[in-house]
Write a protein that binds this DNA or RNA. Structure first.
Lengths: 213, 213
DNA sequence: CTATGCCGGAGCGATTCGCTCCGCAACTGG
DNA sequence: CCAGTTGCGGAGCGAATCGCTCCGGCATAG
């Protein structure tokens, strides 16, 4: 039997998932109506759970940061430094971490968010350091390079977006196609290639990543 | 001396460049007002040159297709198959080819566009075939993989977008950061890596890529 | 069976959209 | 030097969409 409490919880999960998907398709201009519709939920229910659109997106950002940190810790738990880094990258891309970047400037950044972001930066630093010292990671690859790769590959268009673009050929294997891109990028990160062009930025990594203008 | 005709031509160029930049930042929801403002041109001038918003975007798509084909022919002219493919990828990403994908479903596809797209597919086929036969390209990489890489890396956020995201650390070297990602991806495409996950799609490449829903 | 409280969605004012229309300034031919 | 012409910028139109409020209806708890 499904109690009312069950419905409320399921609605909340559906809202967060829908918000992520809609953001992936529509970018920063995503509307609350679209989120509610995709979640199969009335607008009223959305606004009972979240007082404003910003509150919903803040909650989603926190979820995203939590996922990043959890994936990083999982990677660090792997005794093989390279496998750990690869797992982290794969998980972040598949989560669609990059699709949330466009709203970073549209919401107020809470203390909790910046704290979690800072912690995430430290974890990625450690992941990269381990992989580099093990000789598995190309020496001149920075954490910035990796987070940008995650961001770009994580913006892989969702199924609906692909359909709008007329790329029906990719519909059956969109997830698989993205996995192939990740594999290509990871191989490009491995040691043994020629140096990357340009000098890696030397300033503090990720400084101001969640700062507000 | 600058005649009126000069001003008109300069305005047209500015409009197309502005349209590309605004699309890169705002996605498919980009407004004509934003395009005109960024081009430093009145809305009236925009609508004298292009009768509708769609006409402007169609013209931009044609430009993009021309750039793709020109870059591909330049790559084919290179006696070194791998260098030719790399040049093609670099040029397409730096042109921002991927930023136009979101509007593909928002405009009517003319015969001219689909013809040019088909020709572009043939050119890429040939680029890939050459590189593979020379043993430079990983054997199981498909043209789909490469066009998706171009699309994803080509969506690298413009400077304004980076500023909105609070990634001020990247502002001075956004172009350089993108170049580093391209280099990583290209190294991942080179021969000598383990096979890619999943089976490459066997259906006709790019079928329906510009088709209308 | 009554009472409770969460559900969905119609509808509010405000904003933004694509687009039209017109006053103004700049260049041209005489 | 003077009309005449032409391309310029932007105020403003109706329509569409925005974030958000409010309430009637109904399933569930007691």
């Amino acid at each position: 039997m499904t109690t009312r409490r069950d419905i409320t919880e399921r609605n909340d999960r559906a809202l967060l998932q829908a918000a992520r998907d809609v953001l992936a398709e529509d970018g920063a201009h995503a509307s609350v109506a679209a989120v509610a519709a995709r979640a199969g939920v009335g607008i009223g229910s959305l606004y009972r759970r979240y007082r404003t659109k910003e509150e919903l997106f803040q909650r989603l950002s926190l979820m995203s940061l939590d996922h990043w940190n959890e994936a990083a810790e999982q990677g660090l738990a792997d005794p093989d430094p390279w496998a750990g880094l690869a797992t982290f990258v794969r998980r972040c891309v598949e989560f669609g971490q990059g699709t949330l970047a466009p709203i970073a400037g549209a919401i107020e950044v809470t203390r909790e968010m910046s704290d979690k972001a800072r912690h995430g930066d430290e974890l990625l630093d450690e992941l990269v350091r381990r992989a580099r010292e093990a000789g598995a990671l190309r020496a001149d690859v920075t954490t910035v390079d990796i987070s940008l790769l995650i961001e770009q590959l994580g913006r892989f268009p969702a199924a609906d977006q692909l359909r709008k673009q007329g790329r029906d050929d990719l519909l059956p294997g969109a997830a698989e196609a993205r996995r192939r891109l990740i594999a290509i990028a990871l191989d490009g990160l491995r040691a043994g290639h020629a140096p990357l062009p340009g000098s890696p930025p030397d300033n503090e990594l990720f400084t101001g990543r969640w700062s507000n203008p």
